[in-house]
Design a binder for these strands. Structure first.
Lengths: 226, 226
DNA sequence: CGGCCGCGTCACGCCTTCGTAACGGTTCTG
DNA sequence: CAGAACCGTTACGAAGGCGTGACGCGGCCG
């Protein structure tokens, strides 16, 4: 449901087919054929999952895998030709979550991606983020303060989650619209402001003097754990 | 650690990668792709656990399961394609301890194997999940509250079981359709709602004020043990 | 100092989302 | 073969979320 995928595959025709198929399956896809470019994009705005070919120009897929693992928990599904099976083992050791051998059937790729996403958003491990005295649990869609659950609506929760994924970082309204609402970009709108305000009303000690969600005038918002 | 696994899977590439992954997880693995061969090997030297695909040449996985159960208490984890979900039900009735649907991710398979081993070395015959005062027994397809059995239909039970496998985790309707009904995708449908409602009617103290199966508006449902 | 841009805030109303009841087809069972 | 159980589907109403526009305040720059 609307997850953001980064597809890294150097063969243009495969890349195009896969992009179309994945989009039709309901994913939002960003595609690139270059390893370094993939890393740059990933650092710019993290994805829910990375589909990674092993054979790449400029920077090997295994290197990209290692680097992504060093920086993030994002799930990784590798693509490989049968001849590269040995690399698959290396990839799994490096922290990839699954692999698909080329030539692959689109339904299989989709199924595996879904399966991996299911696990990564699931209970195993720690899907919770702690910000100050807040516990944000992505799996159960709950936020607790000192064991006490704070009821949030779906939109409020997603907003908080996106902010909490990269605390201290400033999010423009445009980016938030993309991440939380899946909007492309709608001109001037108070939508984000209102959402932030409603969220503040529930999680800030004093909503009039917000300390958690800070406004960065002329830019956007950022979550500011003390 | 160092348990001996018998892996029965006819697809050579899946077999190979699973073998590598399981060995890396610290198991000693014997692999075969043939049902009769599996039985022979099992009789020759018993294993701590059997990983069993359903689709097999020469002898069906369910037959192998039944035969192993007749001869031994060795735990069994079944592998099945989604299309074979009905067989999973049969398999569990035949005495399998857990199942993993293909395509699977190695970490999940490893986790389930470990979980089953943990259970089987602990209190034998304990394939039950306890949620509050509910005992959910996947083996016998029964649910009890304080020794009293609550009669559920097959669909209701599967729904409850899936929810109970990962309590507190929110399940979208789409995911539940996949897990319980084996539907690929169905647009708007009240199917899940109705099923949840019927289940609530049987297990909630007050179905009007559900406390066990919580609705997460805009997202889905989750099982919420107190 | 004055105008402007950016942001907070509020209330209103649409529209999604969920619960629920009822119906009918299919399968199971005696 | 008849009745029951089960399950998928549909329709409808209620509730609540959420987007929108207006307005006012305050900071910022010329």
């Amino acid at each position: 449901m609307d997850e953001r995928l980064l597809l890294v595959e150097d063969d243009p025709s495969i890349r195009e087919i896969a992009t179309l198929g994945l989009e039709q399956a309901g994913f939002r896809v960003t595609a690139t054929g270059d390893g370094r470019d993939a890393l740059l994009r990933f650092r710019h705005s993290p994805f829910d999952l990375v589909v990674l070919d092993i054979m790449l120009p400029s920077l090997d897929g295994l290197e990209v895998c290692r680097e992504i693992r060093r920086e993030s928990q994002s799930p990784i599904v590798m693509l490989s030709a049968r001849a590269e099976l040995h690399d698959v083992v290396v990839g799994l050791e490096l922290g990839a979550d699954d692999y698909v051998t080329k030539p692959f059937e689109l339904p299989e790729l989709v199924a595996r991606i879904k399966a991996v996403l299911r696990r990564s958003t699931g209970s195993p491990g720690d899907g919770t983020i702690a910000i100050d005295d807040l516990e944000i649990d992505a799996g159960s869609f709950t936020v607790r303060r000192g064991g006490e659950e704070i009821p949030l609506t779906a939109t409020e929760f997603r907003l908080l989650l996106e902010l909490a994924r990269r605390p201290k970082q400033v999010f423009t309204r445009e980016l938030l619209l993309e991440l939380v609402w899946n909007y492309d970009y709608l001109g001037d709108s108070r939508l984000v402001d209102v959402a932030v305000q409603r969220l503040r009303g529930k999680i800030e000690a004093d909503p009039k003097e917000p300390t958690l969600i800070r406004t960065v005038r002329g830019v956007g918002y950022r979550l500011d754990p003390s």
